[in-house]
Amino acid sequence: MEQRGTLLIFVVVVVVLVAGSAVQPSGAQPSPGYYPSRTIRSMAFGEGYNNLWGAQHQTLSPDQKALTVWMDRSSGSGFKSKRSYRNGYFGASIKVPPGYTAGVNTAFYLSNNELYPGKHDEIDIELLGTVPGEPWTLQTNVYVRGTGDGRIIGREMRFHLWFDPTADFHHYAILWNPDQIVFLVDDVPVRRYHREAAFTYPDREMWAYGSIWDASDWATDGGRYKSDYRYQPFVSRYSELKIAGCEVGAAASCRPVPASPSGAMLSAQQNAAMLWAQQMSMVYYYCQDYSRNHANYPEC
C-alpha cells in the first residue's frame, strides 16, 4: 500500500511538471502582432539630431549610429532633432546604468518648450533611476498647453518593466498622430492617450529630444532618494534612432505612420498586449489618483 501511494505521488508530480512546461510563463511578453520598429530604418545621429547641451558628456560610435551620454556632478547631456514635426513615430533603443542611480532621469521625448515657453506641449518617455534592489521606473507623460507658471498638469502613467532595462537595449517609442498617442516598449503598446478635445491634446509642432539629467527632487520615490555622485558617472546609451512622420513643412499629402495593421486604431491583438502590460507592470495612473483635482482632467 505504501509503495502504491509513493507511485501515485510520483505520477502526479510528473504530470504537473509536464503540464507546467507547456504553459507560457506569466511574465512572457505577448506578441502585439504589429512591429513598426522593424519597418522604420535606423539613422545616423547626425542625420536627425544635433547636440543641445553637455557635448563633453557625449560620444558617438564609429558608425555614428549609437550615442553614449553620461551625467556627473558637473553636467548631464541632451540632444534635439534637427527638424520639427506635426506627427510621427519617434523611437530609440536605450540601455540605462545599473547600481545606485537614484535621481537619474534618462529621457526620450517630444516638446515645443523652446517655441512656447510657459505654455508648451510635451510627450515624455522617462526612465527613472533607483536604489539597488528596486526596479527602474518607466514614466510616460503628456503635457498640454501650459505647464509653466506654477500650473503643472501632468498626465503620468508609470510602470515597473517586465525586464531589466540595465541588462540590454530595449526599444522605446512614441507614436503621435492627429487622433492618438501610443507609447510602445519593444513594439508592445503600454499606453494609449486618445484625443478627446483640442484643449486636452497636443497638436502643435514638436521636436524630438533625448537627455540624461539630475531629477533628484522628484524622480526616485518622490525625491526621497537623491543622486549620489560617489557613483558617477551615470552612463546611458541610445541606439537604433528612428524618426518617421510628417515634418512641419511636409506636403498636405503626407500621411502619419499607422498605429496598427489597419492603419487607424489599435488592433485587438495590440489592445490585448497593452492590457497585459498594464496589468503586469503599471504602478501609477493619474486618472486613478483622487488626491488630484480631476477638474483638470476631463478625459478621465
Rank of each mutant, 00 (worst) to 15 (best):
A167Y: 09
N51R: 15
T68W: 04
H57Y: 06
P97Q: 11
S31H: 07
E122P: 07
A55C: 06
G133K: 09
G33P: 03
Y89R: 04
G88K: 04
G129Q: 02
S26E: 10
M71Y: 02
T140W: 03
S84K: 15
L138H: 01
T106R: 03
R158P: 00
H57W: 08
R41V: 10
G48I: 08
G91W: 08
N51H: 14
D63R: 13
T59A: 09
A102R: 07
G88S: 11
G78L: 03
L161M: 15
V96H: 01
Y143D: 02
T68L: 10
D63I: 14
G33S: 08
E122K: 10
H171I: 10
I153R: 06
H120V: 00
P165D: 04
I94L: 13
R41I: 08
G46W: 14
G48N: 02
P32N: 01
A102I: 11
P117R: 12
R83Q: 12
P165C: 11
A92G: 12
V131G: 07
T39L: 13
E122L: 14
A107H: 09
A107K: 04
N112T: 10
R41K: 14
K95P: 01
K65L: 03
K82M: 14
V96Q: 06
K95T: 04
G91R: 09
E114L: 15
Y143F: 15
T39R: 15
P62T: 10
E114Y: 12
I40L: 13
A92R: 06
I40R: 06
K95D: 02
N112L: 11
V69A: 05
K119I: 13
S81Q: 11
K119G: 05
G46K: 11
G76R: 02
T101N: 00
V96L: 00
A167T: 10
K65S: 15
E114W: 14
W70Y: 14
P132F: 11
A107L: 04
D168W: 07
D124N: 14
T166H: 04
Q56E: 15
I40M: 09
R38F: 07
F79C: 09
G91M: 09
L67R: 05
P62D: 13
T130D: 05
H171D: 07
